[in-house]
Simulated assay, not measured.
Amino acid sequence: MSENRKKNSALKVILIIILVVGLAVAWIGYRAFIASSIATSEEYFYVHTDEPYESVIKRIEDEGIVKNPSYFNYVARAMDLQTGIKPGRYKLSKDLSNRRFIGNLRGGYQEAVPFRFQNLRLKENFAGALGKNFEADSTTFLNLLNNEALAEKYGFNKDNFFLMFIPNTYEIYWNTKPEEIIDRFSKEYAKFWNADRKAKAAALNMTPEEVSVLASIVKGEALHVDEMPEIAGLYINRLKRGMLLQADPTVIFANNDFTIRRVLNRHLTIDNPYNTYRYKGLPPGPIMMPSIASIDAVLNYNQHEYIYMCAKDDFSGYHNFAKTVAEHQVNARKFQQALDARNIKK
């Protein structure tokens, strides 16, 4: 009996050891594979195109992305991450486990960038916004925006290529190639210029590009969306009569000085095709990126007989409109006096 007791005691000890070891292995497995792993407060982790596996693993450790880099490395090897990591913008959350995180990296299950843009004045501004939101840098995008051959491919030229980019919100993957992003905007432009908008442009005897150039001037003039159709109607009246547009925003653009608050005679003398005080008709391209509201304001302009306008002297951002020079001079004098009262000289 004594010998049997010893054997039973030894067996119990072995079973206890096996149980403890099993529980320890299960606990480690749970911590390594299933438990929440993310330690950083960063919202996204970025894997660059053609970035070596070793670099990604090192950054995950150096940037404190996960709680236990050793566990992460073990699971990464177990899931063969080194043979299948994909570039992209990956969402991080506190409940994300190593297994899910690595599965996303292997499968390329990234989250798209909700890219929204508006109120951009220059190509450089747009290139900067693209470079900030996507993997390629702003210089790469600016070179594409200035590429004459690329512009012609889509039916534009270097001066008006900026018109192809309709301000809105777009879902685009972070590591999408720059050329593919440009192509995406071409498709969006084609959707925007549907049959209805094209018919309205044709009724104005204008191309979509010409409508958009005028819309950029309307956008430059209007601080309030509800006034855009009125302003658009004024410029259309001037075009129909063969008058100079004499739009101050085009003068500011031609002078390349966006600090100008008061357009003076010296600003009007610049010999530049964007100066609509000297050159009749529309300028060769937009003076800023037109908004959807400004484009639709041109297409749905208010029909009236106004050919002059001047900012109101209450600085509300609205305008006084006039049919005659005499009426306009009264409005202009009030505004000039208001500028003088505020000591706005330039």
Rank of each mutant, 00 (worst) to 15 (best):
A254E: 13
T259G: 10
V263F: 05
L268V: 15
P283Y: 00
R261N: 08
Y279H: 09
F258I: 10
L264K: 13
G281W: 04
F258A: 01
R261T: 05
L264Y: 09
P284G: 07
P284V: 10
D271G: 02
I287Q: 05
K280V: 07
M288V: 03
Y277C: 11
N275D: 14
R262L: 10
L268T: 12
I287E: 07
I252Q: 07
N275C: 14
L282M: 05
M289E: 11
I287H: 07
P286D: 07
T259Q: 15
F253H: 03
Y279W: 06
D271W: 12
G285A: 04
R262K: 06
M289H: 12
K280Y: 10
I270E: 08
I287P: 00
R261G: 02
Y274I: 06
N255K: 11
L282W: 03
P273G: 06
T276D: 02
I287M: 08
Y274G: 04
T259D: 12
P273F: 04
G281V: 03
N255Y: 08
R266I: 07
N272G: 01
M289Y: 09
T269G: 09
D257P: 01
N255E: 09
A254R: 12
K280F: 12
H267W: 08
R278Q: 08
F253W: 02
N265L: 15
D257W: 12
A254G: 09
L268H: 02
F258N: 02
M289K: 01
P283F: 05
L268S: 14
L282K: 00
N255Q: 10
H267K: 09
L282R: 05
R261L: 04
H267N: 09
V263S: 14
P273L: 10
T276V: 15
F253P: 03
K280N: 13
N255P: 00
P286W: 09
P283N: 07
L268Y: 11
T269F: 15
T269V: 15
M288A: 10
F258C: 05
P284I: 13
H267T: 08
N255W: 11
V263I: 02
A254P: 02
P284L: 06
